[in-house]
């Protein structure tokens, strides 16, 4: 089992070098755990990120039946957002514009891999 505190510790590892926030969201878009400068920002990021994800996920299914959305990169004037899945949750990183997209994606992927295993085990356990 992954303790809530341990999850926050893992998320915190990513908030270096210009990454402003790291969030783990459930399938409804509610933040399960997050590191962010402000709670309010975290809720805004969470709501919008999960909306964007589900929209593109649907888009993709319409375009090509068997293909799944794996990663989203949202580029804005004053920052970038990376979103990917971890088990049945969403992982979202919000970064300042000086964080290059490559490193943002790499950090997101690394975090996702790190979190995937314990959460998969949990999901399997609760299903049996």
């Amino acid at each position: 089992m992954l303790k809530p505190k341990a999850i926050s510790q893992v998320l915190k590892q990513a908030t270096t070098g210009g990454v402003k926030a790291t969030l783990l969201l459930n399938s409804e878009g509610s933040p399960l755990a997050f590191i962010s400068d402000s709670d309010r920002d975290a809720r805004v990021y969470a709501a919008i990120a999960s909306n964007i994800w589900s929209t593109f996920e649907k888009n993709g299914k319409n375009l090509m039946r068997d293909d799944n959305l794996k990663f989203l990169l949202v580029e804005c004037e004053k920052g970038n957002v990376a979103i990917t899945t971890v088990s049945n949750m969403l992982l979202c990183l919000v970064a300042k514009p000086e964080v290059e997209l490559g490193i943002l994606k790499a950090k997101t992927d690394a975090l996702a891999r790190h979190l995937e295993e314990p959460f998969q085990r949990m999901t399997t356990y609760t299903q049996t």
Partner: peptide
């Protein structure tokens, strides 16, 4: 509306 000013682009990576 993320607070990062205007959106410029979105990259969606599928399989």
């Amino acid at each position: 509306k993320l607070g990062l000013k205007k959106n410029k682009s979105i990259v969606s990576l599928f399989g």
